[in-house]
Amino acid sequence: MKLTGKAWKFGNNVDTDVIIPARYLNTSDPSELAKHCMEDIDPEFADGVREGDIIVGGANFGCGSSREHAPISIKAAGVSCIVAEYFARIFYRNSFNMGLPIVECQEAAREADAGDILTVDLTSGRVINETKNRSYESEPVPIFMQELLSAGGLMPYTMKNLSK
């Protein structure tokens, strides 16, 4: 599966409190959460982001709380994929469990600038920066996680295995 979109660039340690502040956690409605996505780190993001855009993060993206509201708000904002140097543990799990593709690729994340057009091939792990004409390899998604993604996330996967 290939995804192409415009990059929104963020730094290191983007935490779940800036992705979606707790003052909005009194709802879990995805479209409400999307309106405030990244509000405390980039107030322009929620208005400016377009369907298919890609978030580029630095090290330890998604650190902090276990709130699934964070990947939910990002997905509902239209973001197709996150490329980061590496992700915090719970955020990594949550993203796969709810079907938001994420890729760990240090070089691609470091070299991308805001506005670059990126193409991410989830199967091979290849990230292409179309603007800079550069291509990067990353570890393909582990088999078990690929199974999760192809089942449509952890819940469909669990229900399918239960009925076996």
Binding site: S66, R67, E68, I90, R93, N94, N97, M98, F144, G153, L154, M155, T158, L162
Partner: peptide, 18 residues
């Protein structure tokens, strides 16, 4: 360990976690 809501949903059903 901390996990997310989808993990919790699956564990509430199966009593297991990966």
């Amino acid at each position: 360990t901390g996990i997310g809501s989808t993990d919790l949903a699956a564990t509430m059903i199966t009593g297991q976690i990966w």
